[in-house]
Write a protein that binds this DNA or RNA. Structure first.
Lengths: 228, 228
DNA sequence: CCAATAGTGTCTGTGAGACAGTATGAG
DNA sequence: CTCATACTGTCTCACAGACACTATTGG
């Protein structure tokens, strides 16, 4: 038996937080369909280069945007006949996090890459069903933020608790208690307090960094931030 | 640009609980490679029949084993050059739950399907990397059991709290408090108490069923069963 | 009656929420 | 000194764990 093999692609939703805003990295499509529209960075697996799909996601992010995420995880496979005008398609979507940095040059086939505020996505027509995929990724990121330190991967090498709190609050769109956050930083054992402090207008703030090779810890309770 | 499209398959890890044992449904392969060995039921997507990969998983389970799961969810994509001797392959693994029932007759290409105790898997040589996929699925099922009522989908239409407790304890391999379970049954609002009780050697037990169209609720805390 | 299983009452423990209070920097 | 931000102490609350207690069946 031999079936028609559908198109298989890998797309990534790369998030960062800048200025208390959750942003997603989009690229302008250089080819039809959806030529010139914003889309998730992604493409076809290259079985010569990619040992697995994680490497495909990394490679496409690197080549199309210049970023290498600090965190990358499978989100979901989306499939169907209607989502790509070229025909039945299967897409493996990843979501990823990186510390904010401006988009550098642009590469080969892609005209331009840009950080776009997730709140402004409705202003931009997105290619394929990429708007839905971003919504899925955002929901997953929000959920995971309630029981893990995943937002730490949106921060630079050295950061303060206040910065981490800001990032968390931006992601879940609710305030949290600094005290709860400190308890979790302690309990997770993911972080090292550096011998360094940073100035921020008042008392100097302790700098932290993620321990090398530290695993993401899952807490047994969610944060339960109140609505506004 | 045109890359070689890798083989894309969909495989399912269908679990059930019987006699306080977690079992997984395996089929004997009817073709090379791994002819005659146990494997997960799965196969290629059929873009004529399957609106998406969920339907592929359902169709393959139905055709190869006769079962229609009460719960089905994507697990993970596994990919690489080494996992299938025929070449680079990409597999979307699902995990699924169903109330126990004996395996019925058998269909077309597949010789036989059978419920196999997950503890006995080491006795059987499994095709491909299916042993690892089952281990992944089991870990996910255990984790999800801590914060949801997902084990209810291993039960028949009508069931008692004691049965649900048994299934949970079998999955997580730890005892839980009946009281905690009752609190969650209440809070989840997923279940209806039927006007019916069943005999089980002592006081009659209340029968419950899953409300039609009830969504799986995620609790904000995990169960925290002690080791043994 | 007793044995067995179903179900409740209620106390403790844990970690999040709330928020007042203290500490330490700059000017 | 004051102001701003960092950090701590400690109370409350919600819900899981523990386990003794009552309830209801069959024999």
């Amino acid at each position: 038996m031999s079936y028609k093999n559908p198109l298989f692609t890998v797309d990534s939703v790369l998030f960062t937080v800048q200025d208390n805003t959750l942003k997603v990295l989009l690229v302008k499509r250089a080819k039809a369909p959806f030529l010139g529209q914003w889309a998730l960075p992604g493409g076809f697996i290259d079985i010569e280069q990619d040992a697995n799909t994680d490497e495909t996601a990394h490679r496409k992010l690197r080549d199309k945007t210049g970023f290498t995420p600090q965190y990358l995880e499978q989100l979901q496979v989306i499939s169907g006949a209607e989502r790509d005008p070229r025909g039945y398609s299967v897409t493996l979507a990843y979501y990823a996090l990186v510390a904010h940095a401006p988009v550098k040059a642009r590469i080969d086939s892609v005209k331009i890459a840009q950080w776009i505020d997730v709140k402004d996505l409705s202003l931009h027509p997105l290619a394929f069903d990429h708007a839905q995929i971003i919504a899925l990724a955002q929901a997953r990121l929000q959920q995971k933020t309630l029981y893990s330190m995943i937002p730490a991967f949106c921060l630079p090498e050295r950061f303060t608790i206040a910065q981490l709190q800001q990032v968390i609050e931006t992601i879940i769109e609710k305030p949290i208690q600094r005290k709860s956050l400190m308890r979790r930083i302690e309990a997770s054992e993911m972080f090292t307090a550096l011998d360094e402090k940073t100035s921020s207008g008042g008392r100097l703030a302790q700098l932290y960094s993620i321990k090398a090779g530290a695993d993401l810890v899952n807490f047994e309770r969610n944060l339960m931030a109140k609505d506004e």
